[in-house]
Design a protein around this nucleic acid. Structure first.
Lengths: 190, 190
DNA sequence: GGCCAAACCTAAAGGGTTTAGGTTAGGGGC
DNA sequence: GCCCCTAACCTAAACCCTTTAGGTTTGGCC
């Protein structure tokens, strides 16, 4: 009987593909074993346990996302870069829903790609010339808005009534751009 | 042996409390049965199945949240109302993390409280005098930002370095307020 | 005092994770 | 060319969770 000749990477990628295909909740060691024509227990040779596997999918996805964002923002600046960054995330979330869901899951380990993503974000925000101390708040706002929008969109919580979410998305990006451009002078600065 | 004398509501509330205490993932029919000193199968008298139970927790939480928001925004308007609405959500998310997690789960049924919440939100947004067609986009932005922020905060994705999230939160609300006040004239309106 | 509905039970099937320990395949050293 | 050692894979079994089917008990009401 030919061996499946698995490895960590192969299993992790299969898990990510399974998540994209049938939903994040469907990624299960049993399902993967079935897919490979192997006994469930055999997967423990390549993977510490289920939670470690899901962490690995998270890491894989984060790396891919960082790659996409890197090429999206390359050569752009200001508002254009902001749009590119946000759109890259939205495209990823739509094209790879399972991988994107894996990103929502709090990961036990902070992968290296996380730092890359922060760096890319800061590069985009640099053109807005915020005070240094405000950079982190702006990053958080950006992350919250984009992730929040994509979560609500994915979970169908925006409802199927009303205009397309595409318009809402543009408005959200516009709002972010405005907020960033007018950052220091907003409201009544306490 | 004294009967536990359960009912749907009792089970649902216990599930919500369990979620707050030990995390949403910990709410399991087995755990609830243990808690009541009853066999798991007996719970099926009061609850259709696990997924229906989780939907009910969702509904319970949404009602509670709507209540809180209603009293929070009562008698306030404009920016003050916006802050009250957002803070009420943040308080709820922090004080009832399990119930709040239940809200993230896409519910099979759209509970009546959802409509109440939309109505409350629209009341808050009314003072910003947006064009009618923009109301839905503004609502989505508000929801996305608040939910996104709270998700990232709860999952620890903001990291434990850097300034408190409290400041970031205030900035986020400020940004929303700015976006709402300057809504029609932003960027280059296509 | 008896009956009936609802509350609770036992039993069992089915799926998932995980550990312990055994077998086999295949490549490197002699 | 054979050995042998390692890693890939296996079986077995324990444990937890959900769900269905069908039986028993309890308590209130007529």
């Amino acid at each position: 009987m030919a061996r499946a000749n698995l490895s960590s990477v192969v299993v992790i990628e299969a898990a990510a593909d399974l998540a994209d295909r049938e939903g994040f909740a469907a990624v299960t060691l049993s399902a993967l074993a079935r897919h490979f024509g192997v006994r469930t227990a055999s997967l423990y040779t390549h993977v510490r346990d289920l939670s470690a596997l899901l962490d690995s999918v998270h890491e894989l996805a984060l790396g891919e996302l960082a790659d996409r964002i890197a090429v999206a923002v390359a050569g752009r600046s200001g508002r254009e870069a902001l749009v590119a960054l946000a759109d890259a995330q939205r495209d990823y979330a739509r094209q790879r829903p399972g991988r994107w869901a894996a990103l929502q899951r709090p990961a036990a380990t902070a992968p290296a790609s996380a730092a890359r993503l922060v760096a890319l974000t800061w590069a985009v925000l640099r053109d807005y010339r915020l005070p240094d101390a405000e950079l982190v708040h702006a990053t958080r706002l950006l992350g919250a808005t984009v992730n929040g929008f994509l979560s609500l969109e994915a979970s169908g919580n925006f409802g199927h009534r009303g205009p397309t979410t595409d318009v809402s998305w543009r408005r959200a990006i516009d709002a972010l751009d405005t907020a960033l451009r007018t950052w220091p002078t907003e409201g009544n600065p306490a």
